[in-house]
Design a protein around this nucleic acid. Sequence first.
DNA 1: CAGGATCCTTAGCGATACTG
DNA 2: CAGTATCGCTAAGGATCCTG
Lengths: 223, 223
Amino acid sequence: MPTSRSYRDSCGIARALDVVGERWALLVVRELLFAPQRFSELRHALPHISSNLLADRLRELEHNGVIRRGLAPAEGPQVYELTEWGRKLEPILLALGDWGIDAPQPPPPTVLSATSVLIFLQGVARPDPAAPPMTCRLELDGRVWTVRLASGRVQVQPGEPTTADVSLRAEPKTLNALLADPATLATACADGSAAVVGDLSAIGRLLHAVNDPWPSDGHTSVS
Amino acid sequence: MPTSRSYRDSCGIARALDVVGERWALLVVRELLFAPQRFSELRHALPHISSNLLADRLRELEHNGVIRRGLAPAEGPQVYELTEWGRKLEPILLALGDWGIDAPQPPPPTVLSATSVLIFLQGVARPDPAAPPMTCRLELDGRVWTVRLASGRVQVQPGEPTTADVSLRAEPKTLNALLADPATLATACADGSAAVVGDLSAIGRLLHAVNDPWPSDGHTSVS
DNA sequence: CAGGATCCTTAGCGATACTG
DNA sequence: CAGTATCGCTAAGGATCCTG
């Protein structure tokens, strides 16, 4: 049974919270920021939410016009995606995440979704604007992403790149650890927690863009 | 008993929600955006929250470093105020409120706090930059605010102005109605729902700044 | 009266099991 | 895979009662 509880407050803030203020709602939106996702992918990204609650949240968010059930792309699986209005939450969520970095760390074990690492990567990486463009294929939790470094910016897109300098497969937590300390890349490759195909130095450039940004401005990992 | 429920997610967004994601928390922060407030003032601004829950939220927000118990200003009453970190939520809340304007309106009767109207006023009023500066004294729900229109900007501050062109006393809902339709000002004064002292045309300029902004960009009231 | 604390009830949450 | 059904638990909501 979905929630139907309102602040009964005319303020825009309260009305926004009537829509996305319920528990888990904004984390579901977070997971949809970069790409549509299936029910099972959302469950994997948010392992602590129960299936009935996720179903409730999806129903409510759909009913309120924040997400929609994906118009199945040629017999593809059922997916959930943000509406135009829902997409406008992106800058707000990014700002909230930036604010939350200073919050006390929750006690481990904690979870880290692929989307979370990509948000972090896109948010704080500042590649050398002078360096030549680069394309990286990332495989996280079984999904493929295209990451482009070009003209001082990082661009994350869902799906396979048409061409790439390098491919990296790892768990989100492993990638986060690499972003925090690029020196562990060799170890991660050796023990199999990271699998690299192609130009290894390109991965170095990617990790470098986070740790030695142009210009420098703090943050070294999600944690 | 305060809540201690975590998403156990390393993402900054989830960690932010661990701190301000519980019900009512962000509305408490909203009420503190412009000025410290007392327990009873918060209860009045948020009439649908129960007293124990408000006490819980204040405790949690204090414990997490978002608010602090006011260092009583010379034997004044106990107040709650935002910390430095808490204050950084301001732009995020304003953006969220802007987003929430497009949400479906909750069924009446709804509530509207003084802070909510002031947020709206400061957010959308675009006074004529060429017009001379003006100071307005606002009395809402028994508290006094200073509103300055100068060089194309609106500035809201708590407390009595040192000098003012005009003073307006009304309920927040009345002021909101006036912002939506300045033509009702005469009626509101006549039936006593609004009390004006000083230059009546200055109030007209204030309401005008919301309805005929420089340059025009939408929105006519909180609702 | 401000600033809570202490009940009690209900509804949302969380975990598990189950189904098309 | 994509949910639904069930159920115990806990937070929210509401009222009342305390204490300065």
